[in-house]
């Protein structure tokens, strides 16, 4: 339980950036219209590449904090693996939801802007 709490805390620091990428995928999927299923593979690689960049940046800027987790028995590999799998799962859920329900693109545009503003607010507050 403590391990889950610690991994969640680490993920919390990079959640917004990753979630923004996920939402942008869903928005682009919503705008794709009839070709939406064919383009999912492209979005998958877009997600993987952007997630890799976000994790690389996070590890670079938080490398000193990794010793904190290490002293608690959680290695860098465990942190990256656990958060990556969880993030991909969230992405998959949103993509499937969009493919099943088909929420119109303009609605997602507002959600995307909302998340972007929250992200900016959190960044400025820090």
């Amino acid at each position: 339980m403590r391990t889950i709490k610690l991994i969640t805390r680490f993920y919390g620091a990079i959640f917004l950036a990753n979630f923004l990428v996920t939402l942008s995928c869903v928005y682009l999927l919503a705008m794709a219209g009839k070709n939406d299923q064919a383009i999912v593979a492209v979005f998958f690689w877009y997600k993987i590449i952007s997630m890799t960049l976000i994790f690389y940046t996070a590890i670079h800027y938080k490398k000193q904090e990794l010793y904190y987790y290490q002293n608690l028995g959680i290695s860098k590999t465990q942190l990256i693996l656990a958060t990556s799998i969880f993030d991909i799962f969230i992405w998959l859920m949103f993509i499937l939801l969009q493919l099943l329900i088909g929420i119109p693109g303009p609605i997602f545009r507002y959600i995307l802007w909302g998340v972007l503003l929250i992200h900016l607010y959190v960044y400025i507050k820090k």
């Binding site: 403590r2 000193q64 904190y68 028995g73």
Partner: peptide, 28 residues
């Protein structure tokens, strides 16, 4: 480094995430 029961490490720089409170650190 995956065995804190054997060895703990204090690096020469600050390693506690700066956003954590003293209480959270002690709980962890």
């Amino acid at each position: 480094n995956t065995r804190p029961d054997l060895l703990l490490y204090l690096p020469q720089f600050n390693f506690i995430p700066k956003e954590l409170t003293v209480k959270q650190v002690l709980e962890d």
